[in-house]
Design a protein around this nucleic acid. Structure first.
Lengths: 332, 332
DNA sequence: AATTCGTATGTAACCGGTTACTATAAAATA
DNA sequence: TATTTTATAGTAACCGGTTACATACGAATT
């Protein structure tokens, strides 16, 4: 039924080794022989069985993308970037949702090893050094997103959270804000931490700066809502809010709207991430946009590069972010 | 290094066949022998190589999900439902974006065949009968979403678009609308078609009904914006809009907002799908919600069922939708 | 002229499981 | 008691590729 390499070999009158060589363009093959083999492959509609290749050659042309939750609006764009590059290079992507739980991530890694994936992209933050070392031992190339650059191998891709946060606060200042609060995300996440540091860096230089202007949030819409609640009780006169991510910014917007506080009239709001959501809120949300899709592309490209060359030296790439000014921070 | 089935067999003092039987709980194995084997597996930390299993047994414990674009807010929830069920059953999910292009879908199917995926879920609409027949020949179980039930095998999962659309229009009527328009989606899609039919079914019975109240859209935000444009030029007195999906509803909302038309005061808007976006618009959007996550779960469950029993008789499941009333259709 | 090397191809082992088939003893049935 | 049937376990072929190693030959080197 399905043609195998031996069928091709027989039809072409050569050995399986030769056919394999032709397939993989590896080793010496006379060009005439090559033509014969190619013709036989066409004729039989030969499609190499990936399972067999995987078993024999330890290559599956499959990579995995482990992320917290594809439902989180940050990740679809990223996943799309990864998938597009993967596809262009003949790779297929396995999607894994970890809910940011270390256990799930680890169990996934085990499964993926058994399936011989060629590499893994982590958009999560719960793996400890030990896990990564285990990856290296198993010789599975990997790329990580938003990690602190503190390991001896692996590849980390991150954006300039610190700089982006500074830009956000400066932008709010320029828009006329006299007292700017920051709703920060979980401090276990480097991203959240760096953004908070960026805020402080700029805020500290102003007389209105005070620690109670920094409100904890959890990177969710509800977190943004609660934060506004907490913030306004202490600082009813705040006129600028920089949210640690867009989801919280949306929450902030919702709660301000609910309270009848005009945006950007009374309070200006700026988010961080640049997810699509920011275009559909009312008012539209200014934000520090990460090149989400490109991050996905880059991650996939780096991973594939590593798979091919198994150059496992440590490498970190930092991408820039860009301020997108929309209604929520319009000057009076 | 990595323990194989033969290592286990040797250590347990049995044959590989017996080990295999223990692994798969298949055939007769004495319970004492089983214990010995289990112990040996533990001791060697034996992990069966999925590649080998796939090659020998034609089972890869992998399914694929082909959808137009994971960036479209409808799909992340669906993908999550699929992935959760897959994971619970020991399956892994390959994600494929087809951009709704038949060519890409077909090329993906070929790739997936070579990779021996155990089954495929299609959330796309470009495969013709011929493609599906090819799937059947290849004995790859599949489940489709939002398809017209017109084939002899395969499994289709859909929602009650017709009923949902009727509900939407009735809801707008009840909210006080005197002239309701419908922005419909691409008529190649059954979903769009059925929703349009639902609208007509109810609208036809009212004196204000006229074909020009039905505006074509393309299921995107921009499509919604353009539709409002077209609509208002012909019917400036429209006071209710039922959009064929949430994305267009968002566009409608945006454009109405831009024009300073109050919602729900002057015009009420209702969407369809129930994506998360509808909760963050201003005003929040009423919508006919599909049980998106559950559809994903159901699709995965059905597929796995089919994989196990290879019961390939045709089957179609229709799920209900539910009206979610929010601000955009509030009574005066 | 003898040796080495680059080109070209074949043989067969191997990757690590599954499973058809065979063998045997014990239990059930005739 | 003879014949099936059931429980248990092993042998070896097979899935469909990859690749180390062997072979062969003309050209280049010594």
């Amino acid at each position: 039924m399905k043609a195998t390499i031996r069928d091709v070999a027989k039809l072409a009158g050569v050995s399986v080794a030769t056919v394999s060589r032709v397939m993989n363009k590896k080793g010496y093959v006379n060009s005439e022989t090559e033509q014969k083999v190619m013709k036989a492959m066409k004729q039989l509609q030969f499609e190499p069985n990936q399972m067999a290749r995987g078993l024999a050659g330890k290559r599956t042309k499959t990579i995995a993308l482990i992320l917290p939750d594809i439902s989180n609006p940050f990740f679809p764009g990223l996943a799309r970037g990864v998938e597009d590059i993967a596809q262009n290079n003949g790779y297929t992507v396995i999607l894994c949702n970890s809910d940011d739980m270390g256990v799930k991530e680890r169990s996934y890694i085990e499964v993926l090893k058994k399936k011989y994936v060629d590499g893994i992209i982590f958009a999560t933050n719960n793996l400890v050094r030990e896990d990564l070392e285990r990856m290296e031992e198993a010789r599975i190339p990997f790329v990580m997103l938003d990690r602190a650059p503190n390991m001896e191998s692996g590849c980390v891709i991150k954006v300039d959270n610190f700089g982006g946060a500074k830009t956000a606060v400066e932008h709010l200042l320029e828009a006329g804000c006299k007292k700017i609060a920051h709703v920060y995300g979980p401090q276990e996440l480097v991203t959240a931490k760096e953004r908070l540091e960026g805020y402080e860096e700029v805020a500290r230089q102003h007389p209105w700066y005070t620690p109670t202007l920094m409100i904890p949030g959890d990177f969710t819409i509800d977190g943004g809502i609660r934060a506004v609640d907490a913030l306004l009780s202490k600082h009813p006169d705040v006129d600028g809010i920089f949210a640690g991510n867009d989801l919280m910014a949306v929450g902030v917007l919702k709660e301000l709207n609910r309270r009848g506080i005009s945006i950007p009239g009374q309070v200006k709001v700026c988010g961080f991430d640049g997810v699509n959501l920011t275009e559909i809120t009312q008012p539209e949300l200014s934000t520090i946009a990460q090149p989400i899709y490109q991050i996905g592309e880059l991650a996939a490209n780096k991973l594939i590069e590593r798979i091919n060359q198994s150059s496992s030296h440590y490498e970190t790439v930092e991408l820039g972010v860009s301020l997108i000014v929309r209604e929520s921070t319009q000057k009076a």
